[in-house]
Design a protein around this nucleic acid. Structure first.
Lengths: 336, 336
DNA sequence: CTGAAAGCGCTTACAG
DNA sequence: CTGAAAGCGCTTACAG
């Protein structure tokens, strides 16, 4: 292994000077710099990240924490990861996906000193991970919001998204519009904050429209989606439009509705929000979707975190971004 | 931050002794150990992972490298990640997903000293990453195989999988059976090794059956799947059975076949291999799938890597695991 | 069974 | 503009 010492010897300087040119932390005479850079090239030197981390007490590694990786489809989560990783790299950081499933693993990660900061996805209304994060003193940013919104976050703009989804259906003449969203098998408060926010936005939109609301929550699986279809058909036959905010259940909902003899979109119009266009295309008929702003959120989230780490003075305020409508074949005129 | 020194002082021992009890690396008198453990508890001490890494030149961090995260659906990749992460943790390691997209990032990762080893997914026949890995001296294990199979790997057993898929279709009376697999936009040799292996296995199976082969390669998207359906319908109308090994294209293939007036499975039977059951359920009709052994491969891969790191003498030989058939509604008797 | 000390490969005041 | 040196928080021969 070639170390900074090797480079220093070859360039006839001290290791401090080598460090200065590598990091650009101090002015170095051009000729000296050139000699050092040549030595680095010739030796193929690469700075040891671990030693640097110990000496500077900064690792420049950021952890992305996502709790539900095994449980549900996560088409958007990968977009988020890649976007955040790119953003991190541009600013000299590595962002890695760190599987963390329990308290012990969380402690290990937080106390180990291996990451400079954390990006939390699927934030819950009352999120014990956030408490730990705060207690540990590790800088973090949230993708999503807790109950109180005084922590640094970026998030989807659910109000705008739901308004647009409902508005889109209403523009096709639909009046009875249901919401199908996610049910978690966790205690109240431990569910992702977006579920509550989606419901609120939906209820507000229906109130504004003067129509009665219908909320159905099911698991984020095809089986969950089928269950939702049966409930809609059996208990709410008047409903002609559905807003789904449940990535994993959308396919099952469409399939089972059709199996029950309800044509999509002739009998039932469906719009799936907070998902990807590619996922919508997998379904028959291709879903009208509202694509999640995963790429934008990834960048914003990681930048918010790094701003914080680097003490950027005018860190931007918390930001909300709505989903984007992509028309498919699952929305049509309300049946007469 | 509470350090080992703090613990040592409180327990009236040297930091060496603290280190010994934390790591269990040396016999320590029971009373001393108890005193130290009490001090650790009382101070809430957690070992600094970075310092440990520098001192021991081991970080106990493993990187999972996956090149195509942005490009294609990766339902199985997450299963793999979670399984490997669990396996790593049981042996005292952390396994993280490290987004690496180019040479520079690869060098950074390999030379930085931050990871003890790497697990490579989507291995190509001639994989430049493998060359770099070898050159860097970093231990690694492959999920998949390069052209020459002399490197440590675990992989799917494509021969058995394809034999079973073809056999399953033939047991329903199908004779003309096509293969739909993945086309990469990369130069030959740089494509994932499994593509070639799947083709070979398929060709061998058809030869054994005495039937002419039909191979169609398309992108791993819904659009790619639709294209495959059109080609099948237009150019190979005699084909009544299809084996798909292209996770992202399976939905499009089914959709477009039906749109072309070909019922699944009445006119066309489809079996999708190397995917997940949940993905199969999203499609109408639910696909008969062969689920990828992602969980097993994750464990085996990470164990092979750790065995190597720890110099386990009888490291198991390379292992191949076939997919598992899960019947859906997409396979039926061949049309008369 | 325990400790003193060197060392892992860097960064960073401090001095010149 | 450059260098000598302390220090980051551990591990690990070595000695006793």
């Amino acid at each position: 292994m070639v170390t900074m010492r090797d480079v220093a010897e070859r360039a006839n300087v001290s290791i401090a000077t080598v460090s200065f040119v590598i990091n650009g932390t101090k002015r170095v005479a051009p000729e000296t710099r050139a000699r050092i850079e040549a030595a680095i090239r010739e030796l193929g030197y690469r700075r040891n990240v671990v030693a640097r981390a110990l000496a500077s007490s900064r690792t420049r590694i950021l952890a992305l924490l996502h709790p539900y990786l095994e449980a549900r489809p996560i088409a958007t989560a990968n977009q988020f990861l890649m976007s955040a990783a790119h953003g991190a790299r541009e600013r000299g950081y590595d962002l890695v996906l760190w599987p963390v499933n329990d308290d012990e693993q969380m402690s290990h990660l937080l106390a180990g000193g291996l990451v400079d900061g954390a990006l939390l996805m699927e934030v819950q209304l009352r999120d014990p991970r956030v408490d730990r994060l705060i207690a540990s003193g590790l800088p973090f940013a949230l993708i999503g919001r807790t109950e109180d919104e005084d922590l640094p976050f970026v998030d989807m703009d659910f109000t705008t998204t739901i308004d647009q989804a409902v508005g889109h259906l209403r523009s096709f003449g639909h009046r009875r519009i249901a919401l199908v969203t996610l049910r978690m098998r966790v205690s109240t408060g431990n569910e992702p904050g977006w579920i509550m926010r989606v419901k609120s936005a939906y209820l507000a939109a229906m109130a504004a429209a003067g129509e009665p609301p219908t909320v159905i929550t099911v698991e984020g699986t095809s089986a969950g989606g089928r269950k939702a279809a049966r409930r809609l058909s059996a208990d709410f036959p008047q409903v002609t439009g559905v807003v789904v905010v449940n990535e994993g259940a959308s396919a099952g909902l469409v399939k089972e509705s059709r199996a029950l003899g309800r044509s999509v979109p002739d009998d039932l119009s469906i719009i799936s929000a907070a998902t990807t266009a590619e996922l919508g295309e997998m379904i028959e008929p291709s879903l009208t979707v509202m694509t999640a702003p995963a790429t934008e959120l990834g960048r914003l989230g990681v930048n918010a975190l790094i701003d914080q780490l680097e003490g950027v003075p005018d860190a931007p305020p918390n930001i909300l971004i709505p989903c984007t409508l992509v028309s498919g074949q699952s929305v049509g005129p309300a049946p007469a």
